[in-house]
Design a protein around this nucleic acid. Structure first.
Lengths: 198, 198
DNA sequence: CGAGCGCTTGATTGAGTTCAAAAATCGTGG
DNA sequence: CCACGATTTTTGAACTCAATCAAGCGCTCG
């Protein structure tokens, strides 16, 4: 739980002693590549904090196509907020892209920690707003931008995922086909584009 | 402020006396069709509760195209949450589609009312989650659905707007051109589709 | 070592855009 | 209340970006 601890203390502003009080609200779980943490029709009873590895959430539409909603590498939380909050069956899958370790947080984790720590409550509200902002940004891209622009934005926003996530999943996240992404990359290479890592 | 009052009491669960305490946190304002309540580069200092009329928020991209983000008829609140919350300049326009009357709520309205009323705090959190859910739904549609499906979904979700909002704005909301929407409608008419109002 | 998966490439198709112009509707002033 | 100009909607034709279908290559892991 070391990452989890650092996350709560450094990011969410908990004190050491507050962390000690809440650390057993979450239980650690190993998930191997390909195994599921959530499937459609289940109500999403947990959030998953990623200690190590990489998870994703996605839906499958009527035609059988996957649409990736989110990637969650180390120190990210992934869940179906709506399902949890409204106690509705989810439409998501959540599974592991890599062998991972995560902390299961049950539905009222947030409430309990908020009750304990004002600074966590503030952090939580900030997260909600960040989430909204990123969803809004994605809508803007989907409405206004072509495949290339969306890919470039992805690289800018998630450079650390570029090398870890298979290309067809990135395509799915961007709402294009793997073939199209391959061509976008080819075109970028021709124009001598290289992502910068620093 | 009658709608505003009903909204806070019936929906958000305030008592009459709580409402009396907060009612002067908001100031009423008439906005005539076409006039702006927010423009890009301003920080969004207010939420706007729509007493009567119809507002919208939208962006304009590099190529000069409008992309409508949201419509807000009576009893809706519209704003740029991210801009307000993070105190960043907005990228939105908000203007009036019809002559409207709205209540200006300043940035800490929410905090002040939350401090006063637990039930409002709960309602507010619920609104945030609903907002997230609707954004997520829109992303799903943009990624997975064609123009016709998106239009049908719009009709289902906002039947009351269908007759009030010009078609080119609906097209903009759906992320298609007015010409395309016209063709979608023609096709639906040919198949004898009629929206149901009940 | 071979089967399967991921990525690439090519050829074709198709949904939606663009551009242009006509038809319908709206709104405003005389 | 009508008329005229402006705006919105419709229609048509050409075009474009990305999807689809199909085939081949390379890698890995069983």
């Amino acid at each position: 739980m070391n990452n989890f601890k650092r996350y709560l203390i450094d990011k969410a502003g908990l004190s050491e002693s507050e962390f000690e009080q809440i650390k057993n609200f979450g239980t650690s779980k190993k998930v191997e590549k390909g195994s599921f943490l959530l499937q459609p029709s289940e109500v999403c009873n947990h959030s998953f904090f990623v200690e190590s590895g990489l998870l994703r959430s996605y839906t499958i539409d009527e035609t059988g196509k996957e649409h990736i909603i989110q990637f969650a590498p180390e120190n990210w939380i992934i869940s179906d907020r709506s399902s949890t909050y409204f106690n509705e069956p989810s439409t998501f899958y959540i599974d592991a892209i890599e062998d991972s370790e995560c902390i299961l947080l049950d539905a009222n984790f947030t409430n309990r920690v908020c009750a304990l720590s004002v600074s966590y409550a503030i952090y939580n509200e900030k997260s909600l707003h960040k989430h909204i902002r990123s969803l809004q940004n994605r809508i803007n891209l989907l409405i206004g931008a072509n495949a290339e622009t969306r890919y470039l934005d992805f690289i800018k926003q998630y450079p650390e995922l570029l090398l870890r996530v298979p290309q067809w999943m990135i395509a799915s996240y961007l709402g294009i086909t793997p073939e199209s992404l391959s061509r976008v990359r080819k075109e970028l290479a021709k124009r001598n584009f290289k992502p910068k890592f620093d």
